[in-house]
Design a binder for these strands. Structure first.
Length: 463
RNA sequence: GCUCCCAUCGUCUAGCGGUCUAGGACGUCGCCCUCUCACGGCGAAAACAGGGGUUCGAGUCCCCUUGGGAGUACCA
């Protein structure tokens, strides 16, 4: 049977980093097996679901390169089927109408809690035979109260639940709308989902869902619950840990391939390998190699991977992405592609890269104070002046290599290291103590701009 | 409280009874390279939560304790 997996987010906010990993694992599993990956938007919570959130989630998946094979199913549109399923259950005696009020239930749970029991519906409406008209009611599942339900999980192994622990869950609310557990089962079955891959927070729902599949006479899919992602402090990932939405990573200048690689390695492994191309991920991914322990999100390792992908990227392929982060025009300066080539191995992300690119297009308006104090002392200026003369003399022959040679010679003549001139020049050209190698920086800026900035800086800074 | 899940360096993990004086990666700390920052190279410190079993032999299997986490809704 062809593998079909799904990702089923509820559109109530952003695409969470944990959700993104769940989607990734589902996608990888499907692609690995030559199967299909589909989406279901669980928008049955009308209060909280928004169209904008749906779009954000879709955009996020797209950005990560997790493509889906069919138009997304909107759960809200399937309500009629859900009601039909409940009616079937009602007819076959697997469900019953419950007339308990909210207050009644609250009181019952409070008592149970007070007695130290697990709060659960006691089934008091199970045997009601009357059917009062015009009284609001819900429909409950008549769950077996003896025996066990075993979840055969592809990650966790067999997990056994005593049926006595599971109470009669609500299938249909008093307003006639279906609840989550019923909708999931009906939809996964209707969509032909063969493998349900989801977060471990759903494990406790699974035995109930299995019971529903069985009561409805539907084939039970395979389940795989993947461990949750925690924040650096071990608690559930939340806003206070920093970025949790994938859009935030996009805005912070991360590359989708790097994020995918990082997320894949969070919980899954293939021996000692750390870096995987997308094709390798698809080829090697296996649920059996997914661990059972919750993983903490480690920004530093993500940074390392992102920097790795950044410096290995073809500069031309980065141009459009880098432009998103630029706040200045680049027409009058060196080709952006060349600037990227000079910067990519010294940047952790696109934001850093964009910052580093600025001085190539905008002359410094001020100079780093500490750097000036350290490198632009009195003895530096004669060297700088000599450098200007050498560049002036170059005329059309100007190049980074020649400038480099000139610096080397001048320093040798003065009996000092190359840094004695390179650092002053760097500050004059870029405004600070950090830039790509001085010859490359000079070459990119060009003869006129180099002369202008050095002269200008000398005028402003020479005591 | 109750149910369920989990437990190897600070972090992600390899390990699927002997090959473990426990391997890799990020991070950290040294050294080298060097015009700055990076990159790169070399090296170091750093873990099997505790206690019982099973076995000739346990990081690997079982139990308990402890510690994390999830669930416990007319949310999904």
């Amino acid at each position: 049977m062809k593998v079909r997996t799904r990702f089923a987010p509820s559109p109530t906010g952003m695409l969470h980093i944990g959700g993104a990993r769940t989607a990734l694992f589902s996608w990888l599993f499907a692609r690995h097996h030559g199967g299909e990956f589909v989406l279901r938007i669980e928008d049955t919570d009308r209060e909280r679901s928004t169209e904008a959130a749906t779009q954000v989630i879709l955009d996020g998946l797209q950005w990560l390169g997790l493509d889906w094979d069919e138009p997304p199913v909107f759960q809200r549109t399937r309500q009629a089927e859900h009601v039909l399923a409940v009616e079937q259950l009602l007819e076959e005696g697997h469900a019953y109408r419950c007339y308990c009020t909210k207050d009644e239930l609250d009181a019952m749970r409070a008592e149970q809690r007070a007695r130290g029991e697990k709060p659960k519906y006691d089934g008091r409406c199970r045997h009601r035979s009357d059917r009062p008209a015009n009284v609001p009611h819900v429909v409950r599942f008549r769950s077996p109260d003896v025996g066990q339900t075993i979840v055969r999980d592809m990650v966790l192994g067999d997990v056994v639940f005593d049926n006595a622990e599971l109470d009669d869950l609500i299938l249909l609310r008093s307003d006639g709308t279906p609840t989550y557990n019923l909708a999931v089962v009906a939809d996964d079955a209707a969509m032909g989902i063969t493998h349900v891959i989801r977060g471990a927070d759903h494990l406790n729902n699974t035995p109930r869902q299995i019971q529903l599949y069985e009561a409805l006479g539907l084939p039970v899919p395979k389940f795989a619950h993947i461990p949750l992602i925690h924040g650096p402090d071990g608690a559930k990932m939340s806003k206070r840990h920093g970025a949790v939405a994938v859009t935030e990573y996009r805005e912070a200048g991360y590359l989708p391939d790097a994020l995918v690689n990082y997320l894949a390695r969070l919980g899954w492994s293939h021996g000692d390998q750390e870096v995987f191309s997308r094709a390798q991920l698809i080829e090697l991914f296996d649920l059996a190699q997914v661990g059972r322990t919750a993983a903490r999100f480690d920004q530093q390792k993500l940074d390392w991977l992102n920097a790795l992908y950044l410096r290995q990227a073809d500069p031309a392929s980065l141009v459009a992405e880098v432009r998103r982060f630029l706040s200045f025009p680049t027409e009058d300066g060196p080709p952006l592609e060349h600037v990227i080539a000079a910067l990519q191995e010294r940047s952790k992300n696109l934001v850093e890269l964009a910052q580093g690119a600025r001085f190539f297009y905008q002359p410094p308006t001020s100079y780093d104070e500490k750097a000036v104090k350290k490198h632009l002392r009195a003895q530096a200026w004669p060297l700088v002046a000599a450098f200007i003369e050498r560049v002036e003399a170059m005329g059309e022959d100007f190049s980074g290599a020649l400038a480099h040679q000139a610096i080397k010679e001048l320093c040798a003549e003065a009996g000092v290291g190359m840094g004695k001139l390179a650092q002053p020049l760097r500050i004059l050209l870029s405004g600070g103590p950090v830039s790509p190698p001085i010859d490359i920086t000079i070459e990119l800026l060009g003869r006129e701009e180099v002369l202008r900035r050095v002269r200008d800086g000398m005028a402003r800074l020479r005591a």
